[in-house]
């Protein structure tokens, strides 16, 4: 089953606009294998968009690395969706929840990608032995209260989302109140530890 990702305003296959009409390149470097491994290991992200007034707005989100794209889900009628319809350029700051275990921080730049997002990616149980479509007990998302995929690369702990929250999120994905936002990453950059230990890779 697929559900629309956030391209409804632009239409199928359409390019989402750059609010200011600029065609500048994003900061950062092309994605490396290390960037991709980091994205596969961590789910705590901050989605940075541009508001109607031209200023930045950041949202804590659960972020999933799926088939080379970053995915989120959110309410279809949310403000962030409005912002993304206006300007599809985003920055996603990935911060491990266990900062003591991994002090790296990765900023990723990309564009919201028109297309279809697979709802199964947000429903499957990963490697957890728990049967059925429910979210595995140790798989959870603090942000947006959405489930995420467990991968063998996960190295930092994840927050357990209560089952009633997971169920409601799935209902809302199925009934269309929530949608999947998919971002195609263009560039990325590890940034120095703000506390001074410069272990950025």
């Amino acid at each position: 089953m697929t559900v629309p990702t956030e391209n409804a305003a632009a239409g199928p296959g359409a390019e989402l606009p750059d609010r200011r009409g600029h065609d500048g390149q994003p900061p950062g470097d092309p994605l490396t294998g290390e960037h991709r491994r980091f994205l596969a290991e961590h789910t705590r992200g901050f989605l940075i968009t541009t508001g109607a007034d031209g200023g930045p707005i950041g949202y804590p989100m659960t972020v999933r690395w799926c088939d080379g794209t970053l995915e989120f889900n959110t309410y279809r009628r949310s403000a962030k969706v409005t912002h993304l319809r206006r300007d599809g350029r985003v920055c996603v700051v990935m911060v491990p929840r266990d900062r003591a275990a991994d002090r790296r921080v990765l900023s990723v730049w990309g564009r919201v990608q028109p297309g279809e997002g697979s709802i199964e990616h947000w429903m499957r149980d990963g490697e957890d032995p728990t049967p059925g479509p429910s979210t595995p007990p140790h798989v959870a998302t603090p942000h947006g209260a959405t489930p995420h995929v467990v991968t063998s690369h996960v190295v930092t702990p994840h927050v357990v989302t209560p089952p009633h929250v997971v169920s409601r999120v799935r209902e809302r994905l199925l009934d269309g109140r929530r949608i999947i936002i998919r971002v195609t990453p263009l560039t990325a950059l590890f940034t120095p530890d703000p506390q001074g230990a410069d272990d950025a890779g």
Binding site: G24, P26, P27, T49, T50, P56, S107, W109, P194
Partner: peptide, 19 residues
């Protein structure tokens, strides 16, 4: 620590972790 975000001169949003 907070994530600080701004918009660069080319119009791209930028975020990083800050003290």
């Amino acid at each position: 620590e907070m994530v600080v975000a701004y918009v660069d001169t080319a119009g791209w949003p930028v975020g990083t972790l800050a003290g």
